[in-house]
Amino acid sequence: MMPGHIVRFAVAIVAFAILARLPVGLDQAFQFDAALALIWGFGILSLVLLTGYAGQVSLCQATFAGVAAYGAGMTVSSMHGGYLLGIVIGVVFATILGVIVGLPALRLHGITLAIVTLGIALVFDRYVFQDHIFDWFTGGTGGWQVTSADLLGIKVDSSQHLLAAYDVLLALFCLVSVLMVNLHQSGAGRRLRAIRDSEVAASTMGVNLTRYKLLAFAMSAGIAGLGGSFYPLIAGSVSPQPFWVFTSLQLAAIGVLMGVRYVPAAALGGLFMAVVPDVLTRYGHGTFMNRFNYDISFDWFQIAVGVLLILQLILLPDGVWGDMRAKLLHARGAAQRKPAREAPA
């Protein structure tokens, strides 16, 4: 392994050690939010790969997560498989769907691709997740109930062992993050980025566009699915609502807001997406300084995201994380340059 890889793994392990302790003292609802943050974190991470690296647009990342969630739920509840098998099957389903969605992307770009993927999200939302024809997959109106499950002997179910599920998710999230950063710096990542910057140049320099575009969609769907497949575990059941069209749009919006080219932005975005609405519903109403009554409903979250997105596009074009990182690098560069300049004098 290269030194860069060692550093990245070390950072990931430290991050895991810190973040794993974070929700320990919190109540069950916030622990659920923490786990949910990771699931949406995976959703945004999948966009970092697809949009940030390969430059492809997708507005159906939540659909990938949903397909994986239902796949996992189906495996565990109706086929009585272990949860590990459930995750594998969920990810495989999502990946297959990813390849199928990737096919139009071989021809389409930008806004047309966005509309096609949005259409796919709508179709799954209305006609797969909510249609009785697919009851074998969705578990009918009530969805699948996952009451007890274990992963490699670790008890991980929603009611008693939410934290255990959180830890497993977090470990996977850290691992996938490191792999993605490695990918960014390697040959395969360069090929994806070349497709983003100039497709004609990539193809005439020997990059097989078909292969790498499909690969990007497959990997992206797989990552979104990996997060999604944990949903039945932490929520105890699967329903269509979390994976509807709007979630896909929100993933894209928050991904761009946080900086869709950067892996850490996925963690920030996931946290923002899972925790802020809950904080709003909990502390959004009351009295300020014993005088002003206020009542901020959850709906305000959507408006806030929209406003923030507009502000970000103007003020932080590379996303919250992207511009923060640039500032840090700049400051560090200046600090390093200073003594160097003074040395000869």
Partner: peptide, 9 residues
């Protein structure tokens, strides 16, 4: 080289 080996370094 394959993508997985790149990702794993």
């Amino acid at each position: 080289r394959n993508t997985l080996s790149d990702a794993l370094g």
